Simulated scan of single mutants.
Amino acid sequence: MNVYAPQSASSKRALWAHIKDLKASRGVIWIILGDFNQVRSVEEKRNCVFDPVSVADFSSFIYEVNLAEYLMNGSKFTRWLDGGNKMSKLDRMLVCDKFWGLWPTVTLRTLPRNLSGHCPLVFITTSTDFGSIPFKFFNAWLSKPGLDTAVRSTVTSFNFYGPHDVSLAEKLRCIKKVVKEWNNKTKKEENVSLSTSAEVIKKLDLLCEIRDLSEAEKSDYMEYKNNINMINDSRVNELQQKSQVRFGDRRG
């Protein structure tokens, strides 16, 4: 179904209701695309009036009709006005769960708009672009300090206005960013700790050649040795999980 939605909120509600009735009366695979004249979140507009009531109406329609929206690549917005000062994402593609199940990797790509106010959209069913590298979480991280605090702080401070599915995706994106930053920081701290521990053990080994170590020095030796073993064991566990993710667990 090709859609060119009206401007007024009441007319759009009537259109959503009409599409809902049509879909309920016809058990076929549905693809609904075109200019819906409606955004789903404040992030889909720039320098334009934002109507939260219309957003809620549109989101409720998508949820009640059991539709899903594919990822759009190319550009963030599809409609330009006032010489590019006003932008919004009005054009999109919605599909039923049957279509999604048959073609889960479909994407919608925008093309250069040239002199038009709208970007042309291309429907791509061939997976030539695999997108971003998937985010992987490793069990070994759970034993390291700071991760729980970083994630809890991000979830507690998260604030987003928009549809529930968009909100969840944005929350996960924020958590992913924080976990990556924490992991990079932790690796740097571990490298410094390994270097320091190895240097202390080297000095204590040299002392062992000329005299017996004191109790305090023996305690330091064991402490730094255990620190190296703990960090190395954690990294080995992480490497084992990475290998299973990449190549599969072949032990069975």
Rank of each mutant, 00 (worst) to 15 (best):
G84E: 01
L90W: 10
W100N: 11
W103S: 08
L102D: 13
N73D: 07
L22K: 08
D57M: 06
G83F: 05
L102E: 12
C96T: 06
R246T: 09
P120Q: 08
I124R: 06
C208K: 15
N232S: 11
R40H: 10
D212M: 05
D212P: 00
G131I: 09
W182A: 03
A150T: 15
T107L: 07
Y161V: 12
T105L: 14
S195V: 04
G252Q: 04
H18P: 00
L81H: 13
G101V: 05
Q240V: 15
C174E: 15
V42Q: 12
I19P: 00
V49E: 07
E69P: 04
R79L: 14
S127N: 11
D212S: 08
T156H: 11
S11L: 12
H164E: 12
T156C: 04
T126M: 06
G27F: 04
L147S: 09
T149V: 14
D205C: 03
K86H: 04
E209Q: 15
E181S: 13
E217F: 02
S11I: 00
R173C: 08
V236S: 10
T125W: 01
R152N: 11
E69W: 00
S153A: 12
E189V: 01
L81Y: 05
V3T: 08
G248R: 05
N73V: 10
R26A: 04
S234H: 01
L90T: 10
F247Q: 04
M93I: 14
N47R: 14
G146S: 07
V200F: 01
S60Q: 13
L81R: 15
W100S: 10
L90H: 10
G83H: 05
V53E: 11
I31S: 09
L172R: 11
S157N: 11
L207H: 05
K176H: 08
K12M: 06
F130N: 14
N85F: 07
K180P: 00
K202F: 14
D35H: 08
I201S: 00
V42W: 00
G83V: 06
S132R: 14
K45V: 11
S75N: 09
L204R: 04
G34D: 03
S41C: 15
N85W: 04
I31F: 06
V155E: 01
V151G: 02
S75E: 12
P163Y: 02
T125L: 11
L108W: 06
V192A: 11
L22R: 09
